[in-house]
């Protein structure tokens, strides 16, 4: 966790996350945002709340996913295609 005093943005990398053979979608958005995972048909698959630093993570299956962030200051979304197990980065701007 950052102490919020201007440290550089830290991003999870394959070296510091154990994906345990699964597809992991991880990224950064605005802190405290509600982050929704939608499948290729736009159907809801899961939702988490980003950490105070804006980090979020989903365990998923291979495929194309849309990740959508909701926050009182605005919404944003990004798409990602995960062809196999491992970490897939999904940054989302909100506004």
């Amino acid at each position: 966790m950052s102490d919020g005093c201007g440290a550089p943005v830290q991003t999870a990398t394959p070296a510091d996350i154990d994906t345990n053979g699964q597809v992991v979608l991880a990224g950064k958005t605005v802190g405290g945002a509600y982050v929704r995972l939608l499948n290729a048909d736009g159907e809801f698959a899961g939702e988490v709340q980003a950490s105070a630093d804006g980090d979020f993570r989903f365990y998923a299956a291979p495929g194309t996913w849309t990740v959508r962030a909701l926050h009182r200051t605005g919404n944003g979304e990004a798409s990602v295609t995960a062809q196999g197990p491992g970490l897939h980065q999904v940054p989302i701007a909100v506004g």
């Binding site: 995972l37 499948n39 899961g46 989903f58």
Partner: peptide, 18 residues
Amino acid sequence: RSPDEFSGKLLAPAHLPQ
């Protein structure tokens, strides 16, 4: 549950460990 849990692809929601 989600379609992937229903079909048997996943055992738990996508944001939780399986």
